[in-house]
Design a protein around this nucleic acid. Structure first.
Length: 430
RNA sequence: UCCACCGUAGCUCAGUGGUAGAGCAAUCGGCUGUUAACCGAUUUGUCGCAGGUUCGAAUCCUGCCGGUGGAGCCA
């Protein structure tokens, strides 16, 4: 009967057939070890000459890397295998012979591997990262579904920008100029007024010429928006959500984390509540640590965020940033008009900002004032103003960057390995 | 856009003015428990491109192209 590597534990002692590829191979005069992969996992198959016959044994020894084949044999438990099971191969049938597979079991550079990303995804480490990514997505849907959120999909083609600061991808919408979405947030605010609690999950685009291990041109964000929730309520949602992600990956991806050599002790510490410090406290903390290049009113750079994160073994919220360095829609603190009710969540171990969120301005007059200050005129922004004209309520929301979160949870150095086909400054292929 | 570093065999790299090298991959042979298996043999070149200096340039100089890391900006 046909099965998959992920299911072999149910077939110990039975003869099964698995459609698979040769990931690697080792052989000697009378025994050969085939490292098999089938998409669901990796497993070793054993070919013994005395049992399979001279002709088939020679055929097994000649199998090339990434040749596809059906293997048939008995599933046995074996403690020498990390996976725990092996197949004693009785027969195999080659489907397609691969010749000169480019990615060998030895070292390769990033450029070469990225040029072969369509093949690199087959490797054990990349496979593990994508499984962690998938688990984070699954846990995201689970968390928001269980907490009464409705998934709403904002548009990708838009006629206006959410935050005028970043470079947008321009495109043509018949006779009009249009942009690829850099955030679905403004639309999610409209959705929250219709459905209460909503979340989105989709791609976003930033035409920034950023070249760092934390940046992609095209990346995926999860953007919840909640009516009748203030800044504090939102922080509670954020820490519960991130904790749920961490515990789900720990529970369902233990083999993948082992493959990635991730220190799971770091992940086990990720449980709500998370520490919270204000921007003011963060500036003081940085000055104590010897940073004399930061003054109140300036935004933090990556080294600053890393230095702050090093003081905590959990993600840390930095709240109440100065109004002037944050987006126009953030609500000022009622007790202090020079700061806004917002928070960035900084991941430990130098992974940087993974969440940014705020309570939004709900007062029509104040929002109109912000429009004037930021020069937001024209009908492209009119609909957003109407959300404050017709039954405005306090509401908050946040955006979580999927790739940065995957990089942090999986312990991967660079976000380009956390998305199947990264779009980078100089890469649109494959 | 700016700063730093890099570009030599299919891959990873050494070679800093005097005959183009190593390991891996590939091919052939050996080996009954391998884990990036190991051992022996064989094959592999537009030294990123263009110009210059020199008796002689992979090596020194100039320009260009490409890549990597970082800054700014952000998730």
């Amino acid at each position: 009967m046909k099965t998959t590597i992920s299911e072999v534990a149910k077939h110990i002692g039975e003869d099964v057939t698995i459609g698979s590829w040769i990931a690697n191979k080792r052989s000697s005069g009378k025994i050969a070890f085939l490292q098999l992969r089938d998409g669901t996992g990796f497993m070793q198959g054993i070919v013994v000459k005395a049992e399979i016959g001279e002709e088939k044994f020679q055929e097994a020894k000649a199998l090339t890397q990434e040749t596809s084949l059906y293997v048939t044999g008995t599933i046995v438990e074996d403690e020498r295998s990390l996976f725990g099971y092996e197949m004693q191969i009785k027969d195999f049938e080659v489907i397609h012979e691969a010749v000169d597979y480019p990615i060998t079991p030895k070292n390769h550079g990033t450029e070469f591997l990225m040029d072969h990303r369509h093949l690199w995804l087959r490797s054990k480490k990349q496979h593990a990262i994508m499984k962690v990514r998938n688990e984070i997505i699954r846990a995201t849907y689970e968390f928001f579904n269980e907490n009464g959120y409705v998934k709403i999909d904002p548009p990708i083609l838009t006629g206006s920008s959410a935050e005028g600061t970043t470079e947008l991808f321009h495109t043509q919408y018949f006779d009009e100029e249009a942009y690829l979405s850099q955030s679905g947030q403004l639309y999610m605010e409209a959705a929250a007024m219709a459905f209460g609690k909503v979340f989105s999950f989709g791609p976003t685009f930033r035409a920034e010429k950023s070249k760092t291990r934390r940046h992609l041109i095209e990346f995926w964000m999860i953007e919840p928006e909640m009516a009748f929730m203030d800044h504090e309520d939102s922080l509670n949602v954020q820490e519960n959500y991130v904790s749920h992600i961490a515990s789900s990956v720990l529970k369902n991806c233990s083999l993948e984390l082992q493959t990635l050599e991730r220190d799971t002790a770091m992940l086990e510490k990720i449980s709500a509540p998370f520490p919270r410090i204000t921007y003011d406290e963060a500036v003081d903390m940085l000055k104590e640590k010897g940073f004399d290049d930061i003054e109140w009113g300036e935004d933090f750079g990556a080294p600053h965020e890393t230095a702050i994160a090093e003081s905590f073994d959990k993600p840390v919220f930095i709240t109440h940033y100065p109004k002037d360095i944050k987006a126009f829609y953030m609500k000022p603190d009622p007790d202090r008009s020079d700061v806004v009710l917002c928070a960035d969540l900084i991941a430990p171990e130098g992974y940087g900002e993974i969440v940014g969120g705020s309570q939004r301005i709900d007062d029509l007059k104040l929002m109109e004032q912000r429009y004037d200050e930021h020069g937001l005129t024209g009908e492209a922004y009119e609909w957003y103003l109407q959300l404050r004209r017709y039954g405005s309520v306090p509401h908050s929301g946040f955006g979580l960057g999927l790739e940065r979160t995957v990089a942090w949870i999986a312990g991967v150095e660079h976000v380009r390995e956390t998305i199947p086909f990264p779009r980078l400054l100089n890469r649109l292929y494959p």
